[in-house]
Design a protein around this nucleic acid. Structure first.
Length: 138
DNA sequence: ATTCTGACTTGCT
DNA sequence: AAGCAAGCCAGAA
């Protein structure tokens, strides 16, 4: 994963407000580059530097192995949840997920501008590199 | 070049 | 809700 891509993903995730969330696929679409798996890869390696719990699977489930920690954040931030988070907290057995129809972040004008800037910057940097590489495939 | 892998997604059972 | 198959994009070996 190019460092340019990592920085762009992290920059977008930092914009996601408390109590809201995006899917991996959302992030890749906002960036206009890569795909959900690429975003997931970035988060698995560098997610600890940003509010990683605000990036979810399309199902609304938190990333495997991080459910408990993510749930603490959701309860504190008032993120809309579905299922039985309370039971999960008490017994560790209840099934739950983030209510994406309610929690999904839609960028306001300001956020849109910043995201556009990030996406554009990323595109420029990636394009410059690809040009350097072109024609030299030995 | 080929194959395997993965904090993914969608569609179908 | 859960499991599976395919499609997907890149990095690693």
């Amino acid at each position: 994963m190019r460092i340019e891509y990592v920085e762009a993903v992290l920059a977008v995730v930092e914009l996601v407000p408390p109590g809201t969330a995006l899917t991996y696929g959302d992030v890749s679409e906002l960036l206009g580059s890569g795909g959900p798996r690429q975003v997931g890869r970035v988060m698995s390696h560098c997610g600890s530097f940003v509010p990683w719990w605000r990036v979810l699977r399309s199902s609304g489930h938190a990333p495997d192995g991080h459910e408990a920690e993510a749930l603490r954040h959701y309860l504190r931030e008032g993120t809309p949840l579905l299922g039985h988070p309370n039971e999960y907290v008490r017994t560790g057995e209840g099934r739950w997920r983030v209510d994406l129809t309610a929690a999904r972040w839609s960028p306001d004008d300001g956020g849109h501008d910043r995201i556009d800037a990030i996406a554009e910057h990323l595109e420029l940097r990636l394009h410059r590199l690809s040009v350097d590489d072109d024609g030299m495939s030995v």
